[in-house]
Computed example of a mutant assay.
Amino acid sequence: MTAEQTGLRIQEALDALADSGAGQAGEQLVRDLMEFYGEGLARIVPALPPPALERMLDDPAVAGLLLLHDLHPEDLAARIDRALAALPERVEVLGFDPATGTLRLRRTASGCGCGEQDVEAALACHAPEVTALELERTPRLLQIGTRPPLPAEAR
């Protein structure tokens, strides 16, 4: 289950509790559990050997948990690079506007192409600060090669 799916399920449960009048108790329960898990993760992360932590950062669920508890060791640029490296097609970061949350990208190689939804999914757990994408489309170039050899009778 992704962090987004979990968040939606928790929100649905809190909404149901609010309808029954127990909304505040449900919200307090979520806060207490978050604090408990955050304290545990804060003790685990520094104890991990760097190679093990590095491998775990590629897992969207682990990355999402570390971000949620402000324990992720990488800065935003590194997390964006990590998310984009998982895509089947290479893209270049042109810039990020923190005021709007907009990430500007350009495809660097032609191929079958990944859509914005693929890029958004890759960024969701690694860089939730990115809330909008501008994906610059590079025109496909026609490759001109040499003419095929003429048949012997045409020479």
Rank of each mutant, 00 (worst) to 15 (best):
G95K: 01
E54L: 04
E27S: 13
H72V: 04
D15T: 14
R43N: 03
P60E: 01
R43M: 02
E27Q: 14
E4Q: 06
V119L: 15
R90P: 09
M1Y: 09
G64E: 00
L76Y: 10
A61N: 10
A16Y: 13
A47I: 06
A122T: 12
L142E: 14
E136S: 03
G113S: 12
G38H: 02
R90A: 15
L150A: 13
L94E: 00
G23L: 11
L67E: 02
L48A: 03
A99V: 07
A61D: 09
Q5N: 11
L123T: 00
C125H: 06
C112S: 10
A122V: 15
A122P: 13
R155N: 00
E92N: 02
A16G: 12
L67V: 03
C114M: 10
D97L: 03
R9M: 13
L141A: 10
Q143I: 14
E116M: 05
G38R: 00
P139T: 01
L84P: 06
A78F: 09
E89M: 13
A124G: 05
A86D: 11
L66W: 05
P50C: 00
I144A: 04
I44V: 14
D97W: 06
P49M: 05
G7A: 03
R104M: 02
A78V: 09
P88I: 05
G145Q: 11
D81I: 08
E4W: 02
A121W: 08
A152D: 12
A78E: 12
P88W: 04
F96T: 01
G64F: 00
D118M: 15
L41T: 05
A83H: 11
A18R: 14
A61G: 04
E74T: 01
A152L: 15
L103D: 01
L84D: 03
L66N: 01
Q24P: 05
E27W: 15
H69K: 12
L48E: 11
C114D: 06
A13V: 14
E120C: 04
L48F: 08
S20G: 05
M56D: 02
G26E: 04
L67Q: 06
L29D: 07
T6M: 11
E39C: 01
A127K: 01
F96N: 01
A52C: 08
L57K: 02
A121G: 09
L141W: 12
P149D: 07
L17A: 13
V93N: 01
G111H: 10
R79L: 00
D59S: 03
M34V: 08
R106Y: 08
